[in-house]
Design a protein around this nucleic acid. Structure first.
Length: 477
RNA sequence: GGCGACAUAGCCAAGUGGCAAGGCAGAGGACUGCAAAUCCUUUAUCCCCGGUUCAAAUCCGGGUGUCGCCUCCA
């Protein structure tokens, strides 16, 4: 039984797909007017892992994430750069693909763009007009919030309360101060499309209603984004979509908590906006992944160099184990597992169950990582205590970590984990081994230092010398 | 003014009624030529005050503090 905290009901709720075995997810994507920042990254990452997890749990997942490629910010930025809005979109969609790839975020099944769905948007607005949920005002079309009775149900506010606090300048022509634009009349020099109401462009909220329903149907299983989208964006989407379909728009509303930088909200005025583009030049993106997944998705997290460093060291612990496992698998013994080995295998099974259990419960990736560490300790103990390990013990453990990594994606797996050294380096190591056997510690230590310069760390173990590449990127933060 | 979230060890962070996960840092020990890695041991009056209960970090009431939303914002 999979449960999520639903913003709409303010409770954890069992996931009951509209169609058995299938899950449709729509996550609000970026406005492609600039490189995305690490707050965006947290949302992308959360939904990436969520989607992988639901696949792991056997669902046929369709994941849709839009690109907002036309709005005020797009127009303003394109003007600044003296390029067309379309060129701007192309540029930053490309950047999005590059940066998400660096983070290990997989592409969605669909990345629809607002400007590619203008006819559907127009048709949708026409339906809202037919149903008297919208009205025309001098070439603009507005949604009339007062005609949608449950307006405010997602953010749990009512229209009176909202109006009271409204600090925004009230447009007296509108029927209600909270009425929002579905269609904006053309302005000179701005991109526009033909419509029954003259040339113009879509408002911001309408694209998500339209595209989510085009790709996923009237009722989505999961819809979400950053917490700041709850109001007004998602509230407005509900008004639009339910206004047209008469059916619940989304069964589960998931909202990802904020990411602050050094205890401060990220904002342009504070000048502390950190883009992923910048960050991945300085740090290992897998550490960022680990860092973000080691807190619950709904909790606010605070990004800082110190926290990232802690995360890097913790992750290193898991990677060290994986390295050891792969290395030892090269010289394992055959045979039936002993009682102690059986115990470890039982613990492995219990870990797998606990992992699933905790992720099933509102996607608790934080506790999920704890499971990995506990198994790591048990496995390390086994590796320490027995000079020889069995394949039928090590292999299932490694397999579990691989499974987990297909979901979390922050572990260092695969061939690069155990790679081949240059001949020259191998010679240095064997020279050092000879020196050590002759108790020539000075030479041995000198060679160790020399290799450290080359980013290779030597470790002398009872099983012989072992080496690994230092992850230099981890040290920066 | 309205709505809401959070407060757990030096730091990060799980845990929604039954002896307080996990990571980082620290201390002690084992192993080691020295390191590294690893293992063992150790580190918490769960913000305060009341209440409910056999039992509360967890539920209820009050207080204090931090933050967010109500305006484009992930």
């Amino acid at each position: 039984m999979i449960r999520f905290y639903n913003t709409l009901s303010r409770n954890k709720q069992t996931l009951q797909p509209v169609q058995e075995g299938k899950i449709g997810i729509y996550a609000c994507g970026p406005t492609v007017y600039d490189y995305f920042h690490i707050g965006n990254a947290r949302v992308f990452l959360t939904f990436d892992v969520l989607r992988r997890y639901l696949q792991y749990r056997g669902f046929d997942v369709t994941f849709v994430q839009n690109f907002t490629d036309i709005d005020d910010k797009m127009i303003k930025r394109a003007a600044e750069l003296q390029i067309s809005v379309d060129e701007l979109a192309e540029r930053y969609i490309r950047a999005y693909r590059e940066d998400t790839e660096a983070l290990g975020v997989l592409p969605a099944d669909y990345h629809p763009r607002a400007t590619h769905h203008i006819p559907q948007i127009i048709a949708f607005i026409e339906k809202l007009l037919e149903k008297n949920l919208a009205y025309e005002l001098e070439g603009d079309i507005y949604y009339h919030v007062a005609s949608f009775p449950s307006y405010g149900k997602l953010s749990h506010q009512n229209l009176d309360e909202l109006s009271l606090g409204a600090r925004v300048e009230i447009d007296a022509r509108k029927r209600h101060p909270m009425d929002f634009a579905l269609w904006k009349k053309e302005k000179p020099g701005e991109p526009s499309w033909e419509s029954p109401w003259g040339r113009g462009r879509p408002g911001w909220h309408i694209e998500c209603s339209v595209m989510s329903m085009v790709y996923l149907g009237n009722t989505l299983d999961i819809h979400g984004g950053g917490q700041d989208l709850i109001f007004p964006h998602h509230e407005n989407e509900i008004a639009q979509s339910e206004g047209v379909s008469g059916q619940p728009f989304a069964r589960n509303w998931l909202h990802v908590g904020y990411l602050n930088i050094n205890e401060e909200k990220m904002s342009k005025s504070l000048g502390n906006v950190l883009t992923v583009r910048q960050l991945v030049k300085e740090i290992n993106p897998l550490v960022l992944r680990f860092f973000m997944l080691s807190a619950h998705y709904r909790s606010p997290i605070n990004f800082s160099g110190e926290h990232l460093e802690q995360a890097g060291k913790a992750l290193e612990r898991l990677n060290t184990l994986l390295y050891k496992l792969q290395e030892r698998l090269g010289r394992v013994a055959e045979g039936v597992p002993s009682a102690e080995e059986e115990e470890l295998l039982d613990f492995l099974e219990a870990s797998r169950e606990r992992f699933v259990e905790t992720l099933d419960d509102d996607f608790n990736t934080a506790e999920g990582t704890a499971v990995l560490f506990e198994l790591a300790r048990k496995t390390n103990t086994y590796l320490d205590r027995f000079p020889e390990q069995k394949q039928n013990v090590l292999e299932p453990i490694l397999k579990f970590y691989k499974e987990v990594n297909d979901i979390f994606g922050f572990l260092k797996m695969g061939p690069e984990a155990v790679s081949v050294l240059e001949k020259e380096v191998e010679e240095l190591i064997s020279t050092r081994e000879k020196a050590r056997s002759e108790k020539n510690w000075a030479l041995a230590d000198a060679i160790r230092e020399q290799l450290k310069e080359k980013n290779i760390l030597l470790e002398d173990t009872p099983q012989g010398v072992r080496w690994k590449f230092l992850d230099r990127e981890n040290e920066k933060s």
